[in-house]
Write a protein that binds this DNA or RNA. Structure first.
Length: 573
RNA sequence: GCGUCCGUAGCUCAGCUGGAUAGAGUGCCGGACUUCGAAUCCGUGGGUCGCAGGUUCGAAUCCUGCCGGGCGCGCCA
């Protein structure tokens, strides 16, 4: 099975080859029409062929269309019910109803995607908070986008390894250990470990300005840690464990899980091996006592340091070790890194070096624009930090107020659950509905808005449909309808329903969850428009069943689509 | 300077594997609930798609140059 437009592309390619066997045209493009009034799908090959074939596009379109229709007629399931030439040479088609109902059912079961049975897993590297620091809105995009990509690739049939590349190694640990011994408030630490670790870290930075012995003390503690000192290693583990417990609270609220939590420390022992490999391939050079890798001029990349003067390794070295390890362990189909766009150069360097080392695997740096405030850039140093826990609290609080206002009769317990689903959904959708490559501006009013193009709008459609289906006594799947006359609103809704899988495929290919968000929003708008102008329950049976079927299909697609964004739906809200 | 992303309605943004009159949200104004959930819908107004060339039957979309803004650029991650 394949997307319906792909099936039609096959058909039209054969038609073109039949009518114009000598034409060099290698592909026929079939796409959904923008305006469902014109038809369900269109093929635009005729215009492209006009010059080569020396005929008018409309004549060519007529010939291709006739051939395609003939070929379609001998298939077990006919796809095209009617067809016409329009404008300069567009071939507009209406799809056969039986084919449509079958396709919608196949879509719901995920049966319309090409098989990926023989392909390896997709490794996705995302979230990556830094130990001993609370997660703030700067961590939102990687976490949310990464989680959505994981869901999308799983939906397409891939095995996914979701890896949280935690920042659990580096110079901050020497400082933390010093601070821990000197200034730790045990009560505060027990209550909120990361907050207290942040406090002693900041205090260290302040104190060390006037007390240089602190810095050498920190270096000493770091050295001890790196050499395996028992006490420092225990402390290091403690910092990681307490931090991870805090992150887990956030992940749990967001419904996010990982398969592995391999931080930088996991690759520490493999660093010297990377250097040895680089040396063997003669890629290493020495520069001011550091080991670096140079690049060809046309790469426009500055040299990459892989080992510092003092012998310590860096981020690039760690990422190289990580690539090697993943290839050896998983034989992945591809590796996806989800980080902000400030790391574009870093990954270009790392990928280039890995290539030259012969560590070949398809890899993609899925970068996104940073989240910043209306006035100026996001910065944790300026004190304008919004922690994720605070953001989620506010979103849920706001959602609780609204659900209480709209539906005061619901039990408080249920209203709380609704507030959680609506609140976290709104936060996720705010992020996922925007093109990831643009910077996004954080505005409380926008993030906490529950009207217009927001997730509560989508969840509302779902809940309202559930209410209608319940009143109609529908439970479970509805049989394909027998109605054959569509109103404009019904036509538009069907047209939108057909495009779900195409949106998923496009989102996966471009690593852009906002394609799915856009799609669900479009579907929801079509539904709301339909709903407001089409009575359902009081219609005669055929029409009533058809409209109930449309309701049911819409709800299923919204549920499936939102699941790919990591957003839950509700029976009522 | 080199690299990279962005520039579309007052504001916030979709659309960018080229396709038919450029779309939403929000804001302004007006209308629709004794009727399937009004967190909704319908209508009005709002545009040199940064600028200039090029490719094409066709360009917001691809290419080149320029203008404006964000970010990155050797021992942080």
């Amino acid at each position: 099975m394949d997307l319906i437009t792909r099936q039609l592309e096959d058909l039209f390619l054969k038609a073109v080859q039949k009518v114009f066997p000598d034409a060099s045209c290698a592909a026929a493009v079939v796409q959904f029409t923008k305006d469902p009034g014109l038809g369900d799908v269109q093929c635009n090959s005729a215009m492209a062929l006009a010059r080569e074939v020396k005929d008018s596009p409309r004549n060519i379109a007529g010939k291709i269309a006739a051939a395609a229709q003939e070929l379609d007629g001998i298939r077990p399931l006919k796809l095209i019910s009617s067809l016409e030439i329009a404008g300069p040479g567009f071939i507009n088609m209406r799809l056969d109803h039986q084919a449509v109902w079958k396709y919608l059912a196949d879509q719901n079961e995920g049966r319309v995607y090409p098989s990926v049975e023989n392909e390896g897993p997709v490794v996705i590297d995302y979230s990556a908070p830094n130990i001993a620091k609370r997660m703030h809105i700067g961590h939102l995009r990687s976490t949310i986008i990464g989680d959505s990509l994981k869901r999308i690739y799983r939906h397409l049939g891939y095995t996914v390894v979701a890896d949280n590349h935690v920042g659990d190694w580096g110079t901050q640990f020497g400082k933390l250990i010093v601070g821990y011994h000197r200034w730790l408030d045990k009560t505060a630490y027990a209550e909120s470990p990361i907050e207290e670790l942040e406090r002693i870290y900041v205090k260290f930075e302040q104190e060390s300005v006037n007390d240089e012995t602190l810095l050498s003390e920190a270096r000493n503690e770091l050295k001890k840690l790196q050499d395996g000192d028992e006490q420092n290693t225990a402390l290091w583990h403690e910092f990681i464990d307490s931090s991870m417990r805090e992150y887990e609270k956030i992940y749990s609220r967001l419904g996010i899980t990982f398969d592995t939590h391999r931080g930088e420390s996991f690759y520490h022992d493999m660093m010297s091996g990377v250097i040895a490999d680089l040396k063997e391939k003669e890629l290493l050079a020495e520069s001011d006592g550091a080991l670096v890798v140079f690049f060809a001029d046309d790469e426009h990349l500055h040299p990459c340091i892989v080992r510092k003067q003092d012998g310590a390794y860096l981020y690039a070295t760690s990422d190289l070790a990580c690539i090697k390890r993943r290839i050896d362990e998983y034989h992945p189909r591809k590796i996806i890194y989800v980080t902000d766009d400030r790391q574009i150069t870093h990954f270009k360097q790392v990928f280039n070096i890995a290539e030259r080392l012969g560590w070949t695997v398809e890899r993609e740096h899925v970068y996104f624009g940073v989240m910043k405030f209306t006035d100026g850039h996001f910065s944790s140093r300026k004190g304008n930090v919004i922690y994720l826990s605070h953001l989620l609290d506010e979103a849920e609080k706001r959602a609780f107020e609204i659900v209480t206002e709209k539906n005061p009769a619901l039990p408080e317990e249920e209203r709380k659950d609704i507030a959680r689903v609506v609140g976290t959904g709104a936060v996720k959708y705010f992020d996922l509905s925007q093109n990831r490559t643009s910077n996004i501006i954080f505005e409380w009013d926008k993030v906490l808005s529950f009207e217009g193009n927001t997730s509560p709008y989508l969840q509302y459609v779902y809940a309202r449909i559930q209410s209608v289906l319940k009143k109609a006594g529908v439970n479970g799947e509805l049989p394909p309808p027998s109605e054959t006359e569509f109103t404009e609103g019904e036509q538009k809704l069907v047209h939108s329903l057909l495009q779900f899988s195409s949106a998923v495929v496009q989102a996966a290919a471009s690593y852009k969850p906002n394609v799915i968000a856009d799609y669900i929003y479009d579907l929801s708008q079509s539904f709301n428009s339909f709903y407001n102008s089409h009575p359902i329950l009081k219609e005669e049976e055929t029409k009533r069943d058809f409209r109930l079927y449309l309701c049911s299909e819409t709800a299923r697609v919204i549920k499936n689509g939102l699941e790919l964004l990591g957003i839950e739906v509700l029976e009522r809200m």
